[in-house]
Structures are given as structure tokens and as C-alpha cells.
């Protein structure tokens, strides 16, 4: 995702472009918005689809309700226990990704490497 932000412009010109023209800056911000939106929808999809599959699954295969894992019925294991660490993992993953995207974007626009993300820019 961070590469997608960087793609519109090579590094050496980026900062100067921003100072010269607000139009170019708008292009960057639009690309940031697009990347953020894609990331948000991606996380929501990854979480919502399996979650949405559970009611249908149990409605279609009622026998699953009686299945037990280590003494705990499967529906309880899924909805009472397993879902919570999964939600937390999705949240943590999203926060890391979005912060990296924003850091890359800030680097790109300010042209500085004052906050320790300069190294990542050598990738582009």
C-alpha cells in the first residue's frame, strides 16, 4: 500500500512540487485518501466476511452446533472466545499498516527524513 502512495512522483521532486503547486498536493492527498480507503475496506472485508458466514454456516449445517472442541461447543468457542483475539489482531494489523502509510506519505510531502522513516524510502 505504501508503494501506491509513492508511485505518483519520484522522491527528489516531491517536496518542491508541493511548495510550487497546491494542485499537485491535492493529487497526493487524493492518492492518500484512496490508499486509506482501500486499506479500510480491506480490513472490514477480511473481518466481516467470515463473521457473516457464521450464521449461514450454522443455519445450513445445524449439526455443527453440537460439535465440541476440548469440551467447549463449537459455537461458543467461535463466538465467545476465538472471535476476540481475531478482532484484536485485525485492529493491530490495521494500525501498523495505516501508520506506515501515513509516515511514508509525510516523508514524501515534507521531503525530510527527520522522523526515522527515511530508510524505507530507498525502496522506491
Amino acid at each position: 500500500m505504501s508503494a501506491a502512495v509513492a508511485r505518483p512522483a519520484p522522491r527528489p521532486h516531491a517536496a518542491r512540487d508541493v511548495d510550487e503547486s497546491t494542485g499537485v498536493r491535492e493529487v497526493y492527498l487524493r492518492s492518500l485518501l484512496r490508499v486509506q480507503r482501500r486499506l479500510a475496506l480491506g480490513v472490514l472485508g477480511v473481518v466481516a466476511l467470515p463473521l457473516a458466514a457464521v450464521p449461514v454456516l450454522f443455519a445450513l449445517v445445524p449439526a455443527l452446533s453440537a460439535y465440541r472442541v476440548a469440551g467447549l461447543p463449537l459455537p461458543w468457542l467461535l463466538l465467545g472466545v476465538a472471535v476476540h483475539p481475531l478482532l484484536l489482531a485485525a485492529a493491530a494489523w490495521y494500525v501498523r499498516r495505516v501508520e506506515r502509510t501515513e509516515a511514508d506519505f509525510t516523508d514524501l510531502l515534507s521531503g525530510g527524513d527527520s522522523h526515522g522513516h527515511g530508510g524505507s524510502r530507498s525502496d522506491h
Partner: peptide, 24 residues
């Protein structure tokens, strides 16, 4: 019964939605 476990799941997942769409 179990169908009501959707309440706590939804209460928690609501914050995930809030996180990705609204928080910042």
C-alpha cells in the same frame, strides 16, 4: 442461547469499524 453471543461480538467489532472508518 448462543445467538445472543452476537451482542458482545458486535459491541467489540463495532470498535474495529470505528477504528478503520472514523477514529483518526
Amino acid at each position: 442461547g448462543t445467538d445472543m453471543l452476537w451482542y458482545p461480538v458486535g459491541y467489540t467489532a463495532g470498535y474495529l469499524v470505528l477504528l478503520v472508518l472514523v477514529a483518526a
